[in-house]
Design a protein around this nucleic acid. Structure first.
Lengths: 209, 209
DNA sequence: GACAAAATATGACCGTCGGTCACTTGGTGA
DNA sequence: TCACCAAGTGACCGACGGTCATATTTTGTC
């Protein structure tokens, strides 16, 4: 009698379809201007029902953020598992793949940049917060693994601290691009893509054997 | 008869004292939980009067952000004008000074990280937005100048693109630290300070002659 | 199939907040 | 003294996040 299991699955599906709806609404109206009524209508549910699945508007946003991280994780995983590239070759690919992600999923990319505001308004105990942090750690681990692979195949200097570098690269991804927003159209020929690639080029020189 | 000038000055003072009050309120309660009534009370004004000086809550936040940028600009200016250090010696100092800034002005530092959300809800035409962008450009110019000074005194490789590097450094500052918030207490021994310093060390190797 | 219990869903309702505006206050210049 | 106008007030409005008493649907039992 798998009733409980089925209910569990259905609950999961509902939850996902609410996130689907929330993405459509938040991405089109922006977080501040989107309302929970909008989301409820889009999800074909009542507002009250939303709160059976998510504790707050901010938590719903965290769920979207988690998806964004998941997409990015899968992209990086493919790179990590690519047998045709050595470590140092994979390094600049990280930047390229991130830029591709930002272009192909602009809204999800955007959600990455505003996690702070939502995080601060969510209780740190929630399941969603936990799994979001986990996903973030996964990404850092993948980047770190790629660097370590380069150290094993001797294309990356062995004394490089892979964990630290992976964290600072992640910071790069989520820092350079958003700073571009403040500078956009003001600095002539400003192109966040170029900046990231240039930065990776410099680092490449510093870490390759 | 400098009445108009005096009124201008008084208006400026009022404006500053409102920002003072807003800082106390926003920094203690957080943006979302702070209300305009709180700010009005703290500023010893009516709510309506606030709106004579700032168009919205978000614009008030941008004014705080501008202050943050101003503080940081002045810190970097001192470094730039220091005659006792050559270009490459100033480079790691950038990281140290930024970390100092983040420690000594944690709330202002915090405001740097959430400019996105406020920016998006401000009309791009406002005077405050404009001068905020200007302050941001100033900082990038200072960083860029420091790099160029290193190229003049031949301690930094001459083919380094100072403008691009300055932008990516700025991205580093506003990227690595915030990502630490998501990772905090999860990654053992995680210390954003170390990460930034390590990153600068790597770059130092890449750019020094 | 009948029925009680439990799970799920509803939407009217509440308190709060950002922002407005008709009105008051007080300094200015004639 | 007084008309004028910038500066300031605070009651008020619409909208929104979140709640909860109630209704509907599903489940387990006989």
């Amino acid at each position: 009698m798998g009733v409980i299991e089925r209910k569990e699955r259905e609950k999961e599906l509902r939850s996902e379809s609410i996130i689907d709806a929330a993405e459509r609404i938040f991405f089109s109206k922006g977080f501040e201007h989107a309302t929970m009524n909008d989301v409820a209508e889009e999800a074909e549910l009542s507002k009250g029902a939303l709160y059976l699945y998510f504790h707050s508007k901010n938590e719903l946003c965290m769920a979207i953020l988690q998806r964004s991280l998941h997409i990015l994780k899968e992209i990086f995983e493919i790179l990590r598992d690519d047998k045709n590239l050595n470590g140092i070759e994979k390094f600049p690919k990280l930047a390229e793949l991130f830029i591709t992600f930002a272009k192909e999923h602009p809204n999800h990319y955007d959600s990455l940049l505003s996690y702070r505001e939502h995080r601060e308004n969510c209780p740190a105990t929630g399941k969603i917060i936990k799994s979001t942090i986990e996903e973030n750690q996964n990404i850092n681990r993948i980047i770190s693994d790629i660097i370590k692979m380069g150290q094993v195949d001797k294309t990356i200097k062995k004394y490089i601290d892979a964990d630290k570098l992976s964290l600072s690269l992640w910071g790069n991804f989520t820092g350079i691009m958003p700073s571009s927003i403040l500078s956009e159209k003001v600095i002539p020929n400003f192109n966040p893509e170029d900046i990231i690639k240039y930065h990776f080029q410099l680092l490449l020189n510093a870490i390759s054997t």
